[in-house]
Design a protein around this nucleic acid. Sequence first.
DNA 1: TGTATTAGAGTACATTTGTTTTAATGGCGC
DNA 2: GCGCCATTAAAACAAATGTACTCTAATACA
Lengths: 205, 205
Amino acid sequence: MALIPEDDLTVAQHELYGWIKEYMKNFQHSPSIRQMMQAMGLKSPAPIQSRLKHLQEKGYISWQEGKARTMQIVDEIVEGVPILGSVAAGGLIETYNDINQNLDISDVLTKKNVFALSVNGDSMIDACIADGDMVLMEPINHSSSVRNGTIVSALVPGLGTTLKYFFKRNNKIFLEAANTAYEPIQLNQEEVILQGKLLAVWRRI
Amino acid sequence: MALIPEDDLTVAQHELYGWIKEYMKNFQHSPSIRQMMQAMGLKSPAPIQSRLKHLQEKGYISWQEGKARTMQIVDEIVEGVPILGSVAAGGLIETYNDINQNLDISDVLTKKNVFALSVNGDSMIDACIADGDMVLMEPINHSSSVRNGTIVSALVPGLGTTLKYFFKRNNKIFLEAANTAYEPIQLNQEEVILQGKLLAVWRRI
DNA sequence: TGTATTAGAGTACATTTGTTTTAATGGCGC
DNA sequence: GCGCCATTAAAACAAATGTACTCTAATACA
């Protein structure tokens, strides 16, 4: 049960294709035929040429003839997944099939210094952040730049890093869970280091 | 308020840098110096070399000396956000700073035919899927390939597209919401078209 | 077993391409 | 105006590279 139907490829072609994808992901440019030759353990360029030709005929790759390192992987969508519609819960939905919109995640991922944290526990369950989720955080420079109600990751000495709602009242900082089973934490400004504020949530099933 | 501090670049360097990024985004490989020359309206490679050298010294790009089209853009993180630790709710946490792991989203995004749906309503709120979330779905070919308990988007004639838990018992299909306020839907196999199964959830704050 | 097909080795060649060098140009301060 | 500096043009060169070709070994198939 292959996830991607690459069954029309021979073993050698599949191996080369995988190597190329890996190389291009790492180096952001196309490898040369002689590099592929070496990577595949071959001693002449002819077999690579043959495999590339087949890969091109089957629509996996393309390149500009005669030009060095101009391969492209045509198969995979580099960035963006089509948004096919909106889906409702129980009620009516409009399914706009031909909308030309793509889910854009890159703006968050390419933001400077963004980091991710893996969520443990269920203290934010009422904010729809579950155990095992990845939260993408933007570093906080000044605590004054954080609005009340923002979800932040905060380092509380003795407690460790925790994900909570942030509130500031009368120079006191309150960290509140999104779960009534947890008591709010009240702290002085010096007692807490705000690490980042929540940008996005990512959950793999 | 520039997002990325490119202020240390001259106008010519900045223009070239922008063009290179655009080219590499479109073609998945590095341009040649002569291509850049032409794009910048120049008639000799020397000015491009000079600008590339400056871009390299300032840490924007890199390349392998002597090799054709081996440029890389070092500035932006192409894919991947560092996972800095795991964050707990209220309890203790281990914050592993030096873990060399990156949040990898590409495997889902580059999967064939994956599509996204915008979630309306709160019927899946107990599965931590909230109004406004984006759900990434993998197309379903055969209903037999869907396991009980999977979250699917299903097209129910007269009802529209809906996001629900999928169950199959005695050749009947049950679509259950993750919200006790909604009643389960019971259908015959012919009455429902399974569109996709849930791969991931994405939520922007 | 014999033959056709395919894969690979080895080689050669033209083009592309990075790099170097030298000369010309143009702006700029004095 | 004059000289200094950075930018560009122009040309040349060597390395890298894609491509074509021939020959050999392996493989499949009847």
